[in-house]
């Protein structure tokens, strides 16, 4: 039944145009002109706009007529709805969720290993990690005080919201304060899929070069936090930090930037302190 206008139950039996009686089952919907359609599928956000006398604004014209439907509907509305549910679930429990995105090998898992070690016993964490194949990353993250779950996405190059929401119960408990979601290593695809996180964190490691933000502007402008990793390698790679900062600022003036090495620990204090303050 359509809960916004209730006409599914009130008009359970109604005459159609031809004057024949139709029985309208649960989940179906009858309009004042007698046409019937279903609301059973949950893919459609079916809105009712009333113009005065209870007339439905959306037309149900003759089915054989060629016509243009003006829609203005997001293609990812299904993912967005799952993301919205995830966000609500997390907000109710006061959990901070971050969606960590970078190229493969930038150091997402390594940074998480070090982060979990530092937060162990202080801030209860959970981790969901997405990879196309294998559970290597989950194994690396075990034994650091956080519950970890690996999603193997198989052929898919990104996590989507339903996948993530389905495994919340594997990692989240009453104490959880931070949920880290390590996305599939890819700078393009994950950017289009909201998972219900509070914000996205993009990682960029110094060997990748300073023009990554210019080449992948979508993710680097979306992220609220950018972590420049592997700064211990600055002497060995062709990467000018000043240029990186400039490229980032031009694209995303309000972003928080952390410059650190998960390996040597340089810059890690500011990062850990930031996470602690967010969850305090």
């Amino acid at each position: 039944m359509c809960t916004s206008c209730g006409c599914g139950s009130a008009n359970l039996r109604k005459l159609n145009k031809a004057g024949k009686e139709k029985v309208v089952p649960e989940g179906y919907h009858v309009h004042s002109d007698g046409t019937i359609h279903t609301h059973a599928d949950d893919l459609v956000d079916h809105q009712h706009h009333y113009e005065g006398g209870g007339q439905h604004a959306h037309p149900h014209p003759d089915q054989s007529e060629r016509r243009v439907l003006e829609l203005e509907r997001k293609v990812l509305e299904k993912n967005d709805r799952y993301a919205g549910e995830n966000r609500e679930f997390l907000a109710k429990r006061g959990i901070l969720a971050v969606n960590i995105i970078s190229s493969p090998g930038s150091g997402k898992t390594f940074l998480l290993e070090k982060t979990l070690e530092r937060l162990k016993g202080k801030i209860p964490c959970a981790v969901i990690v997405g990879d196309i194949q294998s559970s290597n990353d989950a194994r690396r993250l075990q034994g650091k005080g956080a519950k970890v779950h690996q999603i193997e996405t198989k052929s898919s190059c990104h996590l989507h919201a339903e996948q993530v929401g389905n495994v919340f119960h594997e990692v989240i408990d009453k104490k959880t304060k931070i949920l880290f979601i390590e996305n599939v290593g890819n700078l393009v695809c994950p950017a289009a899929f909201d998972l219900g996180e509070n914000f996205k964190i993009a990682l960029l490691s110094t060997p990748e070069g300073e023009d990554k933000p210019v080449k992948y502007p979508v993710i680097f402008s979306d992220a609220k936090v950018i972590v420049l990793t592997k700064i211990d390698l600055l002497d060995h790679v062709d990467c000018d930090l000043k240029k990186v900062r400039k490229n980032i600022r031009q694209l995303n003036p309000g972003v928080f930037v952390f410059e650190l090495s998960a390996k040597t620990g340089e810059g890690m204090d500011a990062w850990i302190d930031y996470l602690a303050k967010l969850t305090a």
Binding site: H37, T38, D41, L43, V44, H46, H60, Q63, L69, L71, R73, V75, L76, E77, K78, N79, S156, C157, H158, H160, V188, C189, A192, F193
Partner: peptide, 20 residues
């Protein structure tokens, strides 16, 4: 990811057409 986006779109189209 264009293929998975296209698949979502086709699902959505099918629903809209059913409703219409």
């Amino acid at each position: 990811h264009e293929l998975s986006l296209a698949t979502s779109l086709v699902e959505q189209i099918t629903v809209i057409m059913g409703n219409e």
